[in-house]
């Protein structure tokens, strides 16, 4: 074995495999298309890691560096993040459900029933949508409790707490409006209970029933209202409020910790 031997000439199987591996890696990640999406490779220096967080549109919600205590699971239990994740899952599964659903009292129920039996993965999508919706309600509540018991609403985060309360209400209302859509007995009578509660509002009882539920009985007007609120108005509002919420976390100097 001489030192002058040409570099790069594989001498045994292992070296051959190494070369192959490098070639595949090059093909996959060092080609024109890939590099048009991701301008650099895996960020393996602190500088690059900060750059990737700061320049990637999805990651740039985060700061580049955070305090040690905030990545401890027991500080947040990821509850806010998971609430947001549930929102994302709900958006995706919700869009898929919309493909098969017509918000009419004549069709809604059959559509859901057909979705469960005739559509590939339809039942799975519906189940996912249902269970993550319940989970989101629970998680947002737990998130609020974690923020409270860690005293994270204190100055300068007063306003973000209020934004949070709005998000809590939106989450509940989103869930409630979705409840009617399957147009089965469970949906109808649960919303009828809510209809009664709305009607007991002092001063605005009848108005609430007419404006929100479209009348004194649950029917087509209620269904189309709930549908519209559920698939566009409320998610849009929630997304906007979440943007404000996340923005404020950064503006308030990151997450709370003892002064």
């Amino acid at each position: 074995m001489s030192v002058t031997e040409e570099p790069g000439k594989p001498r045994n199987l292992r070296e051959r495999l190494n070369v192959l591996q490098d070639r595949i890696y090059d093909r996959l990640f060092h080609n024109y298309v890939w590099q048009s999406i991701f301008r650099s490779g895996y960020p393996n220096t602190p500088r690059n890691q900060m750059l990737v967080v700061a320049t990637n549109v999805f990651l740039h919600l985060h700061p580049t560096r955070i305090h040690r205590t905030h990545v401890k699971i027991t500080h947040t239990y990821c509850l806010g993040g998971l609430t947001f994740f549930m929102f994302l899952v709900l958006t995706i599964t919700g869009v898929l459900l919309m493909f098969y659903y017509v918000p009419s009292v004549d069709r809604a129920y059959q559509d859901i029933a057909a979705l469960e039996t005739n559509v590939k993965f339809g039942l799975l999508m519906r189940n996912l949508h249902r269970w993550t919706a319940h989970a989101m309600v629970i998680l947002v509540f737990l998130h609020m409790m974690r923020v409270f018991y860690t005293g994270a609403y204190k100055p300068p985060r007063e306003f973000n707490w209020v934004v949070g309360v709005v998000l809590l209400v939106l989450t509940l209302v989103l869930s409630f409006t979705g409840y009617l859509l399957p147009w089965d007995q469970l949906a109808l009578w649960a919303v009828t209970v809510g209809h009664g509660i709305g009607g007991s509002a002092p001063y605005l009882g009848d108005e609430t029933q007419i404006v929100v539920f479209g009348g004194f009985e649950i029917g087509q007007p209620a269904l189309i209202r709930f549908y519209t609120l559920h698939v566009i108005a409320l998610p849009l509002l929630a997304a906007i409020m979440m943007a404000v919420h996340f923005w404020r976390i950064r503006r308030d100097g990151g997450m709370a910790r003892p002064l």
């Binding site: 799975l124 009578w189 649960a190």
Partner: peptide
């Protein structure tokens, strides 16, 4: 969870048939 537990779907909504008890969604 979603593979094993199905979301409920009862009979089609019918204003003339009132289940007893009628309950709001649990969070209400």
């Amino acid at each position: 969870l979603s593979v094993f537990i199905n979301a409920p779907l009862l009979n089609r909504a019918n204003l003339n048939v009132t289940p007893n008890p009628s309950k709001a969604p649990w969070y209400f």
